[in-house]
Design a protein around this nucleic acid. Structure first.
Lengths: 223, 223
DNA sequence: ACCTGGATTTTTGTATCCAATTATCCAATC
DNA sequence: GATTGGATAATTGGATACAAAAATCCAGGT
């Protein structure tokens, strides 16, 4: 049983459906930064009126996935280089905190699961499937979910969503992050050691270390 | 010139007006956790239809100020004890990061301004005015704005908003945080020292240290 | 008195409508 | 040819209307 992935249950409300639809598309990078999202078009696409779509826009805006300006509609957000670095800085301290809190809760089952996820990640990576990105998120997600801090989990997950399109671009270019396996094994080792402070530092460095690699391939950015 | 406080310019859109109205009320604790917010009532209060109010609800929900459930409306959120601690944990690492980034940018002007804000905070505290809470926020805000990280600033500010009602309750009970002056002077000293790592640690400890004091007086909580 | 169930009222979710704002296009001018 | 101005079209913001869901009320039964 993986862990904490969203239930794909049918959306109970039109707004939710619109939100899911748009979030999925934005995560997969189907819209480019700067693209304008016309509420009526999107409403037609999923067969509803503009109102629920507008409400979905608001939610996406507060997660930073789109930008909303009065009378000028909804624009796909995208990150500048600086913003990519900033997002990773924030991730580094939040996931550092999460892993520090998670460390005392680690047990054999958790370590097993992490190894299994890492294995799936490896396989996805070798087959060139961009499923790698999802598996990578899952690896981190297993850890920060273990922190037992719901709000922290939410915030980190939101950051993962924002950088997902760039992770995909990166992955498509370099095809196979070889160093990744080693890095993540190190995180597992740190968790195993039981030294929370050390684990925090390892995670911080891991996250910060990813940013420059990714940034190199994320030129198109900017709104 | 203080620094980074929101322009009270007239709202350009009805949604914005509704948002400002509700956020202000929620920050001041005018609504209690668990209170239900009826969109029509609030719309009537500020003289508009339900639609913009609903959109404001969504924004407030993603900031954690209210809870939105399908077909059951909008409820004032409030924090459990655990959630208060969690929020301070998150604040501690985020503001720690912010102060670390801010430290190299500190100069005499900044130190002067911090002293002035602290002075105003002191005065507000002695007069028992709950303006103390606002000044306290301003003190922190001067520092984290200096980090030069817009997204980080936003996230921290959002957390301040969420805990503001509890800060007010706390302040009303204990009337005068005597230790506060000293604590904040320590932060200024750390900034002055130029040692970013040290400043980060001081800020972390400061923020974490506040939580238990506040938690004691925040019994009514719970959604 | 307390529970139960159904009618009534309230409130929400969504569609549709209208006015106001913004974008686009095209011709006239330099 | 590029630029400007203005008519036209597209799009947004907001109000209203209506159906569906939830909350409330109340009578009848235990």
């Amino acid at each position: 049983m993986p862990s904490s992935f969203r239930n794909p249950q049918i959306a109970s409300t039109a707004e939710e459906e619109a939100y899911n639809h748009l979030q999925k598309a934005l995560r997969q990078g189907l819209y480019k930064p700067g693209d304008r999202l016309i509420s009526e078009d999107i409403a037609a696409e999923i067969g509803m009126s503009r109102m629920p779509v507008r409400e979905a826009f608001r939610r996406l805006a507060s997660e930073g996935l789109v930008t909303l300006r009065p009378n000028r509609g909804c624009v796909v957000a995208g990150l500048t280089l600086d913003e990519i670095y900033e997002t990773f800085e924030i991730r580094s301290v939040l996931e550092g905190l999460a892993v520090r809190l998670a460390t005392p809760r680690v047990n054999a089952d958790v370590l097993d699961e992490l190894e299994r996820v890492l294995e799936r990640m490896e396989r996805a990576g070798q087959s060139g499937s961009s499923d790698w990105v999802v598996r990578h998120q899952e690896f981190h997600s297993v850890i920060f979910n273990l922190s037992g801090r719901p709000k922290l989990v939410r915030q980190i997950a939101a950051l993962h969503v924002v950088i997902e399109p760039y992770m995909r671009i990166w992955f498509d270019y370099v095809d196979k992050p070889l160093s990744a396996r080693e890095e993540h094994e190190n995180i597992i080792k740190a968790l195993q050691s039981g030294d929370a402070e050390h684990a925090e530092k390892v995670m911080r460095d891991h996250v910060l270390g990813t940013a420059p690699m990714l940034a190199e391939y994320a030129s198109p950015g900017r709104r």
